[in-house]
Design a protein around this nucleic acid. Structure first.
Lengths: 314, 314
DNA sequence: TCACCGATGTTCGATTTCAAGGAACTCGAG
DNA sequence: CTCGAGTTCCTTGAAATCGAACATCGGTGA
């Protein structure tokens, strides 16, 4: 069975019409060229070159084989080019993103990524961070935009991506009632947060406990949109990333509540397995970080709430 | 630089998700598989497989490379198939044909050849036999349909193809004059034949000499069509393959002259260089011979001339 | 016409390189 | 601790390459 060396020898002898010239081209001796061509002919079982001709010429079959040989050599060179060009990637990137990001700067990011890597295929999965981490560990995903929370033992690279300020929001009527009520009114009101396994939920519980609210009623839902919808309907106080509800606040559907102590922000990283093409993933992470920064700048912070004991809406 | 063995190892380990399974598939040991993958990774300078995963999985770059590797292996198999399938040929056949054949059964032959070898590319050259033989010797042509006449030293295969009966034809008025004249009238009339270097010309000279006509006037032209045209115009007696002037005779433009002794027939062979893919060329020759036989059957012989001393037209 | 020379490809033997097998080792999971 | 799977190491045989010698062909000059 022939190898690339035999193909190279054949192709160059045909192109240059001479064993000697082919040998010089490939920096080997003439007997070696002769050997390679003979080996190739032995492996296919037919003569491919007419040596009596001057210049040396392919046989009919040799001419047919030549186009295949050229194509194979070009294919090998093309494959080698994958590793020499840091600036392109033509494979598939399986990306896991938490919903907050999917709802904020991710569309912009995807557009820029496609411009940057035109041959790239993206598979996007949206889920909460713990599930995303599990999938990274199981090698179902290549890269995450999520909160930290690595599965123990997984060797991965992690780089800060963005921070989202969290806020509490209520429908105007509920907000008015809370403004006229006291701490007990606040404590009796239902809260609406993400899935129980998600970090926002546990951070909310801790925050309310620190306020003295030991048994809060918290509805948990799986999507940011549902939280927003329920909050607008007046079912409770939604705890959401501030930037993601700017439109609803501007429309008057929701009002932000002023808190004595700010909620802890949600911090997100870009995370990928160490074994996975580090420079490409680092490049993707940089691009994502830029998109996040642009988004934060465009959407800014909602007006700074004045500090009052307890809570106050804006 | 990697070879096909390394590509095979990589592709099968990825497909089967296991070094051990890949080794079993390729009938080698596990350390050998490990070596091949390592050699491949060393040659490209990057890790292509994540060995900590179960099953073993390609890295991002590995996945990108996989499609190339598969394509290269398929390309090699495709090239090998050229030598295992006697029934197809996808290259270029450079065919040299004498004009008589080009004007008779060659169009039919070309059609059948294209049906038989759909991927074949044909380059057709029409010339007289000596020139065609020269070009075969210079490797400008792969195969001839011509009279024998090999350039000395050229190692070639030759197989009988067809025979064309030769006849003498004249315009009706000239034919009438010849019928009323005698041998001197015939000897004084100009003859029209092919190029001086062509066999028909020298055969005509020999024929007339045997008739006692030592210094015949013979016009020589390079094409069969020109001979026919000049004969129809009454410029002389055209010496042509009988089958090729059937239409002109049927139309009354030309009349066949009856001869005491028949002209020697023109015998044509299929000829190709021994080094050139013998089975394919033999197959082409068989197909050509069949077309020639079909043509001879369809066109038959013109009516047998009755024998008279000297000459007589039909 | 013949002998000689130069160019080119092939063959042969020696040397070097490479690939594969088998044994031992390492690592992770149960 | 055991087992399954992959890696490392050493030995051996096969394969590739080199250099020298040989063979062939075409051109040139006497």
């Amino acid at each position: 069975m022939f190898d690339f060396k035999e193909l190279e020898a054949f192709v160059w002898v045909v192109r240059l019409g001479s064993f000697r010239k082919g040998a010089t081209k490939l920096h080997i001796t003439q007997p070696s060229i002769s050997d390679r061509i003979t080996r190739l002919e032995d492996s296919v079982g037919e003569s491919l070159l007419d040596r009596s001709a001057r210049p040396v010429q392919p046989t009919l079959r040799g001419r047919e084989f030549f186009t295949h040989a050229e194509r194979l050599l070009e294919g090998r060179d093309e494959a080698m080019r994958l590793f020499q060009d840091e600036e392109s990637f033509s494979g598939t990137l399986r990306l896991g993103v938490i919903e907050t990001i999917a709802s904020s700067w991710c569309p912009t990011f995807m557009r820029r990524l496609a411009e940057r890597y035109p041959q790239l295929t993206i598979e996007l999965m949206v889920d909460i961070s713990p599930f995303l981490h599990q999938r990274l560990a199981e090698n179902d995903l290549d890269m995450l935009f999520a909160m930290d929370g690595l599965v123990p033992g997984l060797c991965a690279i992690q780089t800060p991506l963005c921070t989202f300020e969290m806020g509490m929001f209520a429908a105007p009527e509920l907000a008015a009632a809370l403004r006229q009520g006291d701490m007990a009114t606040f404590a009796d009101t239902a809260f609406i947060s993400f899935s129980k396994q998600a970090r926002p939920y546990s951070e909310l519980v801790a925050y309310l406990t620190a306020l003295g609210i030991d048994t809060p009623r918290i509805h948990s839902t799986s999507t940011l949109m549902t939280i927003m919808r329920m909050s607008i309907e007046g079912l409770g106080i939604g705890v959401l990333p501030v930037a993601t509800v700017r439109d609803a606040v501007d429309a008057g559907s929701l009002e932000r509540l002023t808190l004595e102590e700010p909620l802890p922000p949600m911090i997100y990283d870009a995370i990928w397995r160490r074994s996975n093409y580090p420079s490409f993933c680092a490049s993707v992470a940089r691009l994502a970080k830029q998109c996040a920064a642009d988004y934060a700048q465009d959407h800014g912070k909602l007006s700074s709430p004045s500090t009052m004991k307890g809570y106050v809406d804006t």
